[in-house]
Design a binder for these strands. Structure first.
Lengths: 165, 165
DNA sequence: GCCGCAGCGTTATGAAATAACATAACGAGG
DNA sequence: CCTCGTTATGTTATTTCATAACGCTGCGGC
């Protein structure tokens, strides 16, 4: 993956400056509403995710954590990620062992991704799980969360691939 | 997970004896049809998956590999798993880092699971991805594979949970 | 005040997966 | 039959991902 193409992960450019500050402030505000605490490590990890152009691995976050180049300790980042996931500010992409900030305004706990196997971009989309929920209830299951990850080629990489063929 | 309940993973009892032999023979036959080779390590890993009552971790397989208690080396098992997945004889469950034998007769490359967070059972079901494919095509993606994992409570654990409340 | 809890820092370890290289088995073509 | 390309295995070591366990800190309620 990534060997076949050289695209930047341009689909989801990272936030900077005012946009970044605004996104963090929104998270801050939501935390205050629910009596949760956006502590410094949590805030820092959220910033790093928002600044990134694509999914970040846990150890990428660990390495980038300190403004001075000092890495964080693993538990610091994993605990922050756990919090961010719980509040819906970030999602883990299982098939990549990586994390992205949530792009869906105030969505519930649903999350679904289109993952480009060429450039590594991951685009969140609003899933329709009605068919799956029906199947689950038929089987007697009480579903709590659903993970959906579709893998393939993004529009840009699709074009490149067919062009070189 | 697993701390809350003490159910055996009874939903998918492992195969033994004739049933096991028959399942392995079926895989063998399919391999011969497609000129693939069900070599000893591949066969052994498939057996272990089929015998198991539930999802197996890679290192469970490594530990259980030798009939005499001798573990396998990691690459042996990972390579076998890669083969079994490619042929559709096994599936990886991303959210568990675990593997199960395929229970759907000759299904394509689709796979979806209902995973009980209480007893750890994983039930394969036939997914309907039409809605997701539509969403993906709208976004210009060319989807190759889809992973769907629904987490919740299986019928047995659901009853127990509500009873003890 | 002081107690209980949530969060953090730190050390260490455990679990999951792969890199890299050597060797062996198979199958087609001379 | 034998040699070459290909596929698969054996082996060592390492990398990558994630958590256990412990003690300290700071805040809110009683």
């Amino acid at each position: 993956m990534g060997a076949e193409c050289h695209h930047a992960e341009s689909a989801q450019p990272g936030l900077e400056g005012a946009a970044l500050a605004s996104a963090v402030a929104a998270a801050q505000a939501q935390c205050e509403r629910t009596r949760e605490r956006l502590t410094p490590p949590r805030r820092r990890v959220l910033e790093l995710l928002l600044e990134s152009d694509g999914p970040m691995k846990a150890y990428d976050l660990i390495a980038a954590y300190g403004a001075d180049g000092e890495p964080a300790k693993p538990p610091t980042v994993y605990r922050a990620l756990e919090f961010l996931e719980r509040l819906g500010f970030a999602h883990r992409i299982e098939s990549l062992n990586a994390y992205v900030p949530c792009r869906m305004e105030g969505a519930g706990h649903r999350a679904a991704f289109l993952i480009c196997e060429c450039c590594g971009a991951a685009q969140e989309f609003e899933p329709d799980f009605s068919a799956q929920f029906a199947a689950a209830e038929t089987a007697g299951y009480a579903v709590r969360t659903v993970t959906l990850e579709a893998r393939g080629l993004c529009p840009a990489c699709k074009v490149e691939t067919s062009a070189q063929a």
